[in-house]
């Protein structure tokens, strides 16, 4: 398996909720498997609604949160137990966060963060070398040194700041960037500048990207693969053009029906099971109560992860005609 860039196996994170004595466990991430190939750079989108566990998943991949069980391997090495030194790991996997105005302090020049990164990771030995490195990464995100030097974060637009955050992440020459809702706070007219930058990083710098988002249309535009999350589980996985044009899982279908598309008005007859309902036991499909194709078996048993074709998987009884499966 060492030819894979990233291999996430049976990853779970449980949070305790409620009182000291009774309390219950909430599976924020529930037995997730993901892999990214190592032979070429790819972009994987993780889409889902709030509370689906996509941010927890991202934080585990960045080593910001410890998993309860399961493993994450980067190029065949376990990121927690594989003896990664903190600096080596951070050089290989870089984060980009949602709010660019919070990524940079209002009291520091934004370029100070770039110099710090260059020095701390040993990319540059002195200020002069650092300057070359910083100028280089800024150029690769389409910004000019003179535009950035000695300025504070209030002097930039959200889109520019996010591009500076990307430039900072590029300094360590990472293999993987994990971006958690990187364009959610950015205005529509500037959003594509950041999204296109991700594509360029993939093509020109061979950087892999995990793009965490709730926005299906940018996920479709930028990514090679999409994983759809619902209440901690990946319910569907596959190539992005297939998933969003012919969804296999009823939840993906519901999401697609709900997106406010341009050029195609909502039909009135689509049932909208959007009222939140109580959690079903772990021994059932989590989506059963909202599903328009639900059958009895979905409320009794955990659905299997079914391979629909070579690359696509769906966590559902429907593709197997609601027949009980051998758990594999």
């Amino acid at each position: 398996m060492s030819d894979k860039l990233l291999e996430v196996t049976n990853l779970s994170k449980l949070y305790k909720i409620g009182g000291l004595v009774i309390g219950s466990l909430l599976a924020a991430v529930d037995a997730v498997d993901i892999s990214m190939p190592g032979d070429r750079a790819t972009i994987l989108s993780v889409v889902g609604e709030s509370g689906s566990g996509k941010t927890t998943l991202a934080r585990m991949m960045l080593r910001l949160v410890d998993p309860t069980s399961g493993t994450i391997q980067l190029e065949g090495r376990d990121i927690y137990k594989g003896g990664f030194r903190d600096r080596d790991f951070k050089a290989a996997v870089q984060p980009i966060f949602q709010n660019p105005f919070e990524s940079f302090s209002i009291h520091r020049h934004v370029d100070a963060y770039l110099y710090d990164t260059a020095r701390n990771f040993g990319i540059a030995k002195n200020r002069k070398e650092a300057q070359t490195v910083v100028a280089e990464v800024l150029e690769s995100v389409g910004l000019d040194m003179n535009r950035v030097a000695g300025k504070y974060n209030s002097q930039f637009s959200g889109g520019e700041l996010q591009r500076i955050a990307v430039a900072r992440a590029l300094i360590t020459r990472p293999k993987l960037i994990v971006a958690d809702e990187p364009v959610a706070m950015i205005d529509a007219s500037l959003r594509m500048n950041v999204i296109n930058l991700f594509k360029r990083l993939q093509d020109e710098f061979n950087v892999n990207l995990i793009y965490i988002t709730h926005d299906l249309s940018t996920a479709y535009y930028v990514s090679d693969h999409i994983a759809v999350m619902y209440r901690g589980s990946i319910v569907e996985y596959g190539p992005s053009n297939e998933i969003l044009t012919e969804p296999a899982h009823p939840y993906t279908e519901l999401l697609l029906d709900s997106v406010s598309k341009i050029g195609e008005k909502w039909r009135d007859d689509v049932p909208l099971p959007d009222v939140e309902i109580k959690e079903y036991g772990a021994k059932a499909c989590k989506f059963a109560e909202r599903c328009r194709y639900v059958k009895d078996i979905c409320r009794r048993l955990k659905p299997p992860m079914v391979s629909i074709d070579e690359e696509r998987r769906s966590l559902c009884f429907r593709p197997v005609d609601y027949q009980e499966q051998q758990v594999s």
Partner: peptide, 8 residues
């Protein structure tokens, strides 16, 4: 500039 599903 708006991306649309089904149009790359």
């Amino acid at each position: 500039s708006l991306p649309r599903i089904g149009d790359r």
